[in-house]
Design a protein around this nucleic acid. Structure first.
Ligand SMILES: [Mn+2]
Ligand SMILES: [Mn+2]
Ligand SMILES: [Zn+2]
Ligand SMILES: [Zn+2]
Lengths: 157, 157
DNA sequence: AATATTAATGAAAACCATTTTCAATAAACT
DNA sequence: AGTTTATTGAAAATGGTTTTCATTAATATT
C-alpha cells in the first residue's frame, strides 16, 4: 500500500544516498508505516503492520532498520516506561515538528504537545548554555516528559 | 557497616510503619547503600555492594526491594539509555533535593544539576497548568534530561 | 517468653524485548 | 549480465527483570 500522492522519490531518499545505505523494500515499508501514523509504535507494532503487506519481512529486520533510522536521525526512539521502545518519525515532508510528551501512567496513552514549546525552547536554550559552560558539557539533545493521569483515567482513580 | 552517627531509628522508618511493610535487614542494607552514594546505581551495582556485607542476600530481593521503595516514593527509578534501570534516593534526612540530569552519550556518565532549577520550576509550573487545562491531564511528575558529551568525551570525538 | 500469623526472602526457572550469528539474497556499480 | 557487498530472515543467544514456590523471619497475639 505504499502509494504516494505525487510522483518522484520520497523525501527521505536523500538521507540514504551517499552514505552507502541502500533503499530497500523493508526500509520503505517501515518508513511508510511510520509516516502514516501519529501513534508511538513499538518494534512489534511496526512489524505487525508491515506484516500485513509483506509477510516475509522479519522482526529482526524491523529492529535493524529502526536502529539505522535512529542513527541517521530520521527516527526518534523513546522509552515511556512500559518495557518496550517506541518510535516516531523525527520529521515530515514539511520539516521537523518539535514536540514533547504527556504520558499517562495508568493506561499508557501518550499525547504529543507543541503548546508552550516556545517558552520551553527559550528556557532550554538558556539552560543548555549555562550547563555547557559550567560543566563543559556539549549538549546535543534533550528529553522532556510529563507523567500523570489522562482525561480518561483521572476520574476513575 | 550500616552505622549511623547518632542513635534513634533512621529517618525512613516512618515510611514503612502503618502500611504493613516490615523493616528488614535487606531493606536497611539497600537503603544504606543508596544513602551513602551520590552515584546512580543499577540493581546489580547495589547487589554487589550489599553482597560485601551480606553475602546471602540475593539479587531478587534487590529488585523486589527497589520496586517497593519506588512504590512508596523513597527512590526514583531512571532510564539513561544503557539498558538497565538506575536508582537514586528521592530525598535525604534534610528533605527532597530536586534536580535533573545531564547524560553523556559516549561514556554514560550522569551529572546531577540543580542550577537553573528555579527557572525550570517556574516554567514547569506554567506548562503543567496549561497542559492540565488543555488536555484535562493531571500531571504528577516530570522528567528532564539533557544528552550530550561530557567534559572528558567532547574533545576525543 | 512462647506461639501464631503472614510478609519477606532466596534459588532456580521463566520471561521477553532485543541482539547476534550465519548462510542466502538482492541493491547498486561496472 | 556479472560482480561486489550491503541487507535480509530464521534460529539461537543474550541479559535485565520477573515469577514461582518452599523456607525463613518480622510482627502481632497469647
Ligand atoms: Mn511524539
Ligand atoms: Mn540524580
Ligand atoms: Zn490514561
Ligand atoms: Zn562522557
Amino acid at each position: 500500500m505504499p502509494k504516494r500522492s505525487n510522483m518522484g522519490p520520497p523525501w527521505w531518499h536523500g538521507r540514504f544516498q551517499g552514505r552507502g545505505y541502500r533503499i530497500t523494500v523493508p526500509r520503505e515499508a517501515i518508513l511508510d508505516v511510520l509516516n502514516r501514523t501519529s501513534k508511538h509504535l513499538s518494534a512489534e507494532d511496526i512489524y505487525l503492520e508491515v506484516h500485513k503487506i509483506y509477510p516475509h519481512i522479519g522482526l529482526t529486520t524491523i529492529y535493524r532498520t529502526l536502529e539505522l533510522l535512529v542513527h541517521i536521525g530520521l527516527v526518534f526512539k523513546f522509552d515511556f516506561g512500559d518495557g518496550r521502545a517506541r518510535f516516531e518519525l523525527s520529521e515530515g515532508p514539511k520539516g521537523i515538528r518539535h514536540h514533547h510528551h504527556l504520558v499517562c501512567t495508568n493506561c499508557g496513552r501518550v499525547i504529543d504537545y507543541t503548546d508552550f514549546i516556545d517558552d520551553e525552547i527559550e528556557l532550554l536554550g538558556r539552560t543548555e548554555k549555562g550547563l555547557s559552560k559550567k560543566f563543559n558539557f556539549k549538549i546535543t539533545n534533550h528529553l522532556i516528559q510529563f507523567y500523570g493521569l489522562c482525561d480518561g483515567c483521572r476520574d476513575k482513580k
